[in-house]
Amino acid sequence: MAYQIRLNGETRALDVAGDTPLLWAIRETAGLTGTKFGCGIAQCGACTVHADGAPTRSCQMTVADAEGVEITTIEGVSGPIAETLAQVWAEMDVPQCGYCQSGQLMAAVALLAESPTPSDADIDAALWGNLCRCATYQRIRAGVHEAARRLEA
């Protein structure tokens, strides 16, 4: 049966088994591949989306459970926070391979929405679950601080 999923502000009918993780439905059925598969057990954060604004591991939410929830992916995230972070990410050459960065950015957007001037400890807590095997962490940290500074100005 098709599930009616609110995805990036639109209602999409996704015809998949109800136990399909949202991750695979987003990627393969909706065709939005910015959300990445890394571990499948909520340990790497590459699949982070926003569910009603909250950073959520889409590998752990089934399509059936996603009905009635406003899902936002890296392709649909918008607004000053997301735009500033993306701009800073490029200016500071944060990404290396880039595979984790959708998840990093989704987590960072949620952090700055909640906490406009985060401390290092706030950043550690919010981004701890987002692995970067290239280990771009120091630039991620600097990027979040820089985006916060620009958004405050």
Partner: peptide
């Protein structure tokens, strides 16, 4: 890097 934009917007 010339390739950052695509790595920040998915």
């Amino acid at each position: 890097r010339f390739d950052s934009a695509g790595k920040t917007n998915g």
